[in-house]
Nucleic acid binder design. Structure first.
Length: 421
RNA sequence: GGAGGCGUCGCCUAGUGGCCGAUGGCGCCGGUCUUGAAAACCGGUAGGGCGCGAGCCCUCGUGGGUUCAAAUCCCACCGCCUCCGCCA
């Protein structure tokens, strides 16, 4: 949720942000109108209520002959108050609903434009040059008996996979490496719930444009999280955190579920786009003033991890039209995928400023009082895509795969060989 | 699944219809005292909304109801605890 004060004082700024995202700027006027209606309703209710309370206080002490008259008037007032209260409630709801439609204000520094208008910030490492036809990750995964999508299709349908043998161990190794790195940096590892109730999902901003990609358990009204960002953001819901305790950094380790609606036919082969995968996610609660610097730190930690895995990648500054509803700014790390001849997103970090905190009612307390804090998230490792990048970039002509030193202790080998698990 | 109990301001706690937004203690903050500290004493210490302002309004798990008036009575829901059953 954006700051209603900004909306009232500078609605054009909000409209401009909506336009930059390719979203509807007129939603701003709907919120303004709802805000106006609500304030009028509140004023009416409060004056009636004050009158009712004043009158009520006089009743016990009133002389007998006046009592009946006072009671009659009080009764009338009670009806009016009730009606006015009803009006406030519905105006509140209307305002909240209208305000929830608005996405976060885009950071001034974010590039403008759509999906293709990103800015490349840097390129790290060099794509490998093979003197043999490289195999794609699925072929390698099959050779290594590490990935089985055929049986997964039999059991669960398309966009599922089994990680077996060295594949499963690869996941464990990646998670262990991620936890080691992040713990070093002060993150608290967290294994969160992956089924959440509506306020958590809505508060994190995933029930707007992203709603179609969220699994919902109708019967129990649970949502399956698409990222532990949801459970971690909502962890401090309705709390006030002392500014001295910030930043608070959590490392979510969880399974993620995505419907992938609207991406039929895209990435149908292999494990690049799947309904269920595991991910290690960094999440920070910090002050709004610190959020931009924290965002850079999250990006550095993401880079550090990819560098350790010796995966060539580039960093892009995502354009305004391609930001999630909650993000003011977003950096993606895109790994080189040899068989596709291009870079593909493997990690992503967003600065959500106070947007999620307002929706989730998470605030900080400092000398200036109580105010919303900032939340940020960043992927440390999304398992399937990282495995894809790892296998494809480090493959050798015989189908074996080089293991970078950082992973060796966790994996117990410096090379993955077909037929050897 | 059955039976019962509980849910008050960071923590503990008082409060069974009327100046109760709410008692007291702990904790915390400020002050006095002290060379400094402790102790003692004094004061402060929830959040939100409306209004230029004095100020007013809302919130005692949540939502409804009864009443002129509800933290206090009734109902539902949520959460926690105990016992029984069930499953592991």
């Amino acid at each position: 949720m954006i700051d209603l004060r900004i909306l009232r004082e500078d609605p054009e700024r909000v409209r401009a942000s909506q336009r930059a995202r390719g979203e509807d700027p007129s939603a701003v006027d709907a919120v303004l109108a709802a805000d106006e209606t609500r304030r009028a309703a509140v004023a009416r209710f409060e004056s009636l209520r004050a009158e009712q309370k004043a009158l009520g206080r006089r009743i016990p002490a009133a002389p007998q002959e006046e009592k009946a008259d006072l009671l009659a008037r009080a009764k009338e007032l009670a009806a009016l108050v009730k009606e006015a209260e009803e009006a406030v409630r519905s105006a509140d709801t209307a305002l909240r609903e209208a305000a929830l439609v608005l996405s976060n204000l885009v950071d001034e520094a974010a590039p403008r434009g759509g999906e293709d208008d990103f800015v490349v910030l840097e390129t790290v490492g060099r794509p490998p040059e093979f003197d043999f036809p490289p195999r794609d990750h699925l072929e390698l995964g099959n050779l290594l008996a590490a990935i089985d999508t055929e049986r997964a299709a039999k059991v669960s349908g398309s966009r599922f996979y089994y990680l077996t043998g060295v594949g499963a161990r690869l996941q464990l190794a990646l998670v262990a490496l991620a936890v080691a790195q992040a713990t070093e940096a002060g993150f608290i590892p967290v294994i969160p719930p992956v089924l959440v109730r509506p306020p958590a999902m809505e508060g994190t901003g995933f029930l707007g444009q992203a709603a179609e990609n969220v699994f919902h358990l109708e019967k129990d009204d649970f949502y399956l999280v698409g990222t532990s960002e949801v459970s971690l953001a909502a962890y401090h819901m309705d709390e006030i955190l002392d500014v001295a305790s910030l930043p608070r950094r959590y490392l979510g380790i969880s399974t993620c579920f995505r419907r992938e609606a609207g991406s039929h036919g895209k990435d149908t082969r292999g494990i690049i786009r799947v309904h269920q995968f595991d991910k290690v996610e960094m999440f920070s609660f910090t002050t709004p003033e610190e959020s931009a610097a924290e965002h850079r730190r999250l990006l550095e930690w993401e880079k550090q991890f990819l560098v350790a895995l010796e995966i060539p990648f580039r960093v892009i500054d995502v354009a305004s039209g391609d930001l999630g509803a909650s993000a003011a700014r977003k950096f993606d790390c895109e790994a080189w995928i040899p068989t596709q001849g291009r870079y593909r997103e493997v990690t992503s970090t967003s600065n959500c400023t106070e947007f999620q905190a307002r929706r989730l009612n998470i605030r900080l307390r400092d000398d200036g009082g109580v105010r919303p804090l900032a939340t940020l998230n960043g992927t440390l490792v999304a398992i399937p895509r990282t495995i894809v990048a790892l296998l494809e970039n480090h493959q050798r002509p015989d189908g074996s795969v080089y293991v970078p030193p950082a992973l060796r202790d966790y994996l117990g080998t410096d090379i993955l060989r077909p037929g050897h698990v």
